[in-house]
Design a protein around this nucleic acid. Structure first.
Lengths: 349, 349
DNA sequence: CTGAAAGCGCTAACAT
DNA sequence: ATGTTAGCGCTTTCAG
């Protein structure tokens, strides 16, 4: 009853002093009882906690943070990610964070990297005073973001960064090279090199780069060479996959092709056009995608792909960050997550 | 040069006093120059701002918040949403928030509403001290969440709540009834009522309820009656759509059916099974989904659906919340967003 | 228009 | 084990 009254009382009306008064102790004791119970007699602690309960007391987080210099809030800065990627990453991050007693503040930088690239970090920096650390995902090498961010003096964990670039930071990334290699070995085995294609995302995108590299490597390590147009870049869209495939159809080159796509969307575009132009997949056209999004199991025929543990990306980044917070002297750690080749129908058996 | 030094100096080392010293003014003036320039001579303001710039000064947000009682952070509490829904909502919310100078703190409640439903709000409340207001989405009537949340005394905007339940709060919702009605009129026109089906999500889910109601209404308003099994509930998954459709196939009832699905996933499941059992869509089977997710344009044949402006949901909720923050006396407002019927292939012309 | 001074609510020495 | 006291860095009266 009195509890209800208390908790519906105007926000933040009850302060540590009120608790102290009710419990007949000093405010210091109240503080200790709540934060360092081992320094207080269990009897006093009980009294204090009872008073806290009765008054519905909630410490003022700002006053707290002002003293302790920690807010319990972690920032997470993401580029303009595709829906599923975004949500999985957030889910992983948020889940891990809350499990460890932290909150997650979103600092999307999607539309900030527009005309003035410097805006990105600037925007992020507005939140800097509020957060204990930052998880940042970068998708392009030499991104201003990377360098600006670490000049800011916030504990920082990178997602998806090139190892070399971030040696001083903790980082979490996926072993794209490995996943791509597996995909290539599966898709390209015994193929005529001139029938093999890589359809990439943005030319400067980290992940696309890695995947393209593995693709090229597959051939060069076998002493085989590729035409320049066998490796193309554009963006991560379904439309691009379609456009590419239509181009191929024009020149009658899609039949019998083996196509490694930089993500599932592109792959679906290719697959769609392939089917629409009468090709049997996988008999006349083999395709492998990347990411392992839900899309890959929804299309027909189902798409072979390289599955990325996106939520683990978020989860690990947060874990690393929190660990660093508790021990700034820790040497930088780099977690590398394993992708999984998922063979479905689109690539033959 | 000195700027670089300043900004890479250990975090938060420069305080308002440092700026005051450099600008040869009092800290009060620094504060004014930054927050209420109109109270300071433009000359002094310039000096102060120069000092700020030179030292790379950033006000301590906690000290600020301790005085002003506002953090510039908004909480957003979401249930366990499907990927695309989640990301669009967040994108809208975040974009609007940052445009208005706020940050968004995620307070997902997805896995909190487990065994003890009370946990949800409790978890949220841990962030309460940090946020200026909360956007909360509820998907079930009589959710404890709704009532607990508003007992907490935080400015609150509801997303998707039943109007009656939240008359005292601002709210943003989608006119599901209207969208569903349009879908029904389109899909069911001239149909034999006994061939019409509604495949719902969770039985207690707000949105599903609304859609089911519109479906039933379509017939009852025409004096036609439905068998109980023509309206089914389960969950929002593709699997459920498939399972339902397979059941229908068993009893030879899928042919010539008109199926209104509570979301696109279910619809895709039905569509998939329909095709796999040799039905021509839309000739032998007509389907309409709900939500307007990307999925709906990716399947073949393309899915007719009712498009929901998800990002606008987030965007409007944030806008309402911020407006309320600046004027607590505002009468409660209820924004109702319009869905759009998108007619594609799956429902015939 | 500007400065001096009083806190905001809390934690952390420092005493006892 | 507990109380006293001094701030954390800022905004805001209140005087001038």
């Amino acid at each position: 009853m009195s509890r209800d009254l208390a908790s519906s009382r105007s926000r933040q009306s009850v302060s540590i002093q009120d608790v102290a008064d009710l419990a007949k102790v000093s405010i210091a004791t109240v503080s200790r009882a709540m934060n360092k119970p081992h320094m207080v007699s269990s009897d006093t602690t009980r009294r204090v906690l009872a008073a806290v309960e009765e008054l519905g007391y909630r410490p003022n987080r700002f006053a707290q943070a002002l003293m302790t210099r920690e807010s319990g809030v972690l920032g997470i800065a993401l580029p303009d990610l595709h829906g599923e990627f975004y949500s999985e990453l957030m889910r992983g991050a948020d889940s891990e964070a809350r499990g460890l007693g932290y909150h997650v503040l979103v600092s999307s930088i999607h539309d900030d990297l527009g005309p003035k690239p410097a805006d990105g970090p600037v925007r992020v920096s507005r939140a800097l005073g509020l957060i204990d650390g930052l998880v940042a995902m970068i998708t392009e090498p030499s991104s201003v973001l990377a360098t600006q961010l670490d000049a800011m003096g916030v504990p920082l964990v990178m997602i998806g960064a090139e190892a070399g670039q971030t040696d001083e930071h903790d980082s979490v990334s996926v072993d794209h090279a490995k996943g791509a290699r597996q995909a290539c070995e599966h898709l390209l085995a015994g193929a005529d090199p001139s029938n093999c294609y890589f359809v990439g995302g943005p030319r400067r995108n980290y992940d696309t780069l890695k995947r393209a590299h593995a693709f090229r490597d597959y051939f060069s390590s076998r002493g085989q060479t590729l035409q320049e147009n066998q490796v193309r870049f554009h963006d991560y869209s379904l439309e691009w996959g379609k456009a590419w495939a239509r181009e191929m159809v024009q020149s009658n080159a899609l039949r019998d092709a083996r196509v490694f796509c930089a993500n599932d969307e592109i792959a679906c575009g290719v697959l769609r056009v392939g089917r629409d132009s009468g090709l049997d997949i996988p008999r006349d056209l083999r395709i492998v995608g990347f990411d392992g999004t839900r899309l890959s199991e929804l299309v027909r025929p189902q798409l072979s792909t390289v599955q990325i543990p996106v939520d683990e990306l978020g989860r690990n980044a947060v874990r690393l960050l929190i660990e660093r917070l508790s021990d700034p002297e820790l040497p930088p750690r780099h977690v590398k997550l394993e992708p999984t080749l998922v063979v479905r129908e689109s690539s033959g058996s």
